[in-house]
Simulated scan of single mutants.
Amino acid sequence: MTVAVVQFGGSNCDRDAVRALTYLGVDAERVWHEDGLPEETTGIMLPGGFSYGDYLRAGAMAAQSPIMDEVRSKAENGTPVLGVCNGAQIGCESKLTDGAFTTNKSARFQCEHVYLRVERADTPWTNAYDVGDVIEIPIAHGEGRFEITEKRYDQLEANNQVLFRYCDKDGNSTDDANPNGSTGNVAGILGTSETVAVLMPHPERATLPDIGGTDGEGILHGFAE
């Protein structure tokens, strides 16, 4: 299996992602967006960073790259796709998932550790956990507020597409535990397929034991699964 970690101008978490995946025994390589996906691609990760300097809005310009046509085609055929932070913004802008990520409620960049409650444990990205588990993952974003209309949010809920919610250390999903004002404390969601997911926190920064916690390992194991 080869996971293509797509690098855009301004990506800055692509090397972190490759290192974390390699540590977990997953074959991964950085792919410059203009070069297209390698033929052997069996998984795709859209990493964090500031693609195109977040001009217009975060992820909007990267979503227009021709490689995203390939990503959407692969996703429709069942290839696992994970968007993280800026990759989540690109994923939403590319219509891989519903909703959008906008400026944090605080109107400032936030870099801190947060708690997430696992809402589903039957997807490739969460089957290493149990429903209700609380994991600690870092965030680093200025536009991480998940926004969606009430009607579409109700559809997400009805379709059981919410993967993670921000919570406190005891698993309570409260306003105080919501770092950016996201609708419903949503931190990560599925696309129409369970093999496609986006999340704002950084699991690759909570995978290598020598740089901190390892609560993010289970999410990246989704590629191995």
Rank of each mutant, 00 (worst) to 15 (best):
Y129F: 14
E204D: 10
F164C: 10
S193Y: 07
E143M: 10
A121M: 13
S94R: 01
A62R: 13
R72M: 15
A63Y: 01
A28M: 02
D27V: 04
G48W: 01
A4R: 01
G43R: 00
T2W: 09
G213E: 08
D35C: 12
A121G: 12
C111H: 12
L116S: 01
L163I: 10
G59F: 02
G218F: 04
I211P: 02
H141C: 03
L46H: 04
C167N: 05
T2N: 15
Q89A: 14
G49V: 07
K105V: 13
A17R: 08
W125H: 14
I148G: 03
N104D: 05
P201T: 03
P47Y: 14
T126E: 07
A62C: 14
V26W: 02
L46T: 07
M68V: 01
A63I: 11
S106R: 11
A62T: 12
K74A: 08
I44Y: 03
R117I: 04
E217S: 07
L116G: 02
H221C: 05
G10Y: 13
E29S: 13
A100Q: 09
A88V: 01
D130S: 12
E34Y: 02
D14R: 08
G222M: 00
L208E: 11
D130M: 06
M68D: 07
P201K: 00
G53L: 09
G25D: 15
E112I: 13
T22C: 12
N185D: 12
L56F: 12
E150L: 12
Y55S: 10
P201H: 07
R145H: 13
I137E: 06
S94E: 00
G10W: 15
W125L: 02
G191D: 03
R30K: 15
D170C: 14
G144V: 03
A177G: 12
N180I: 08
R165W: 03
K169S: 13
E194M: 06
L220N: 04
A4E: 05
V71G: 11
Y129G: 00
T174N: 05
R165D: 01
G48C: 09
I44A: 15
A28W: 00
G91K: 03
T126C: 10
E136K: 09
G99D: 06
G218I: 02
M61R: 06
T2V: 14
A17Q: 05
C85A: 11
S51A: 14
E194P: 04
D175C: 08
P38Y: 13
L37G: 11
R15C: 06
P38K: 09
K105S: 07
R72Q: 15
I219D: 00
H202V: 08
A177N: 09
W32F: 15
K151Y: 15
V198T: 06
E136I: 07
R57D: 03
T195C: 04
Y52H: 09
G144T: 00
A20L: 09
P47N: 01
G10Q: 13
M45T: 00
P38F: 12
G83L: 01
I189C: 11
V198H: 04
N127K: 03
P179R: 10
E217D: 08
D35Q: 10
C167M: 13
E40M: 06
F146S: 07
D16Y: 03
E225T: 08
